[in-house]
Amino acid sequence: MSATEPRTSEPPTGSWDDVRDLPPSAKLVAKVLEYNDTLTQSQLAEETLLPPRTVRYALNRLEEENVVHSRFSFSDARKRLYTLTVE
C-alpha cells in the first residue's frame, strides 16, 4: 500500500452489474449469499446443490469482481467464510 492510498477497513464492493456476465453457477452462489449472509464453501455447496469444485470456481469469479469477501473462520481456521459485498 502506498502513502497515497487511503486505508479502509471495508473490502472493495462490486455491483450486480459485475455479476451479470458471470456463469450461472456464480449467479446462483451470489443469490444464495444474498439470502444467507455468510456461509462456508461446503454450506454453499449444500444450499446450491452444486459440486464443491463448481462452488470454488464460482467464488473465485465472484472475488475477482469484488462482489464476495472472504475471511478465515474463527471457530475453524481451515475454513473460510464468504459474504456478499454488493452495493
Rank of each mutant, 00 (worst) to 15 (best):
A30F: 01
R78K: 15
H69S: 11
L62P: 01
V55T: 02
R71L: 06
K79G: 04
N36F: 06
A77E: 15
D21T: 10
H69Q: 10
R61E: 08
P51M: 10
R20I: 06
Q43L: 08
E46N: 12
L28I: 00
R56T: 12
L59E: 05
V68Q: 03
D21H: 14
S2T: 09
E34P: 05
H69G: 00
E65G: 01
D21I: 02
T48I: 02
A26V: 00
V67P: 02
E65T: 07
L33E: 04
D17I: 07
D18V: 07
G14A: 07
D18F: 10
R71K: 13
S25N: 09
P11C: 05
A77M: 15
T48R: 03
D37N: 13
E47F: 12
K31P: 00
Y82F: 12
T40P: 05
T8Y: 06
L22S: 08
R80Q: 13
P6L: 04
L33Q: 08
M1D: 04
F72M: 12
V19R: 00
D37S: 13
V86D: 04
P11R: 03
D76L: 05
E47V: 05
P6K: 09
T48A: 04
S73N: 12
R78S: 15
E34W: 10
T54C: 13
S9R: 15
N60S: 08
V67E: 01
A26N: 03
S9A: 13
S15Q: 02
Q43T: 10
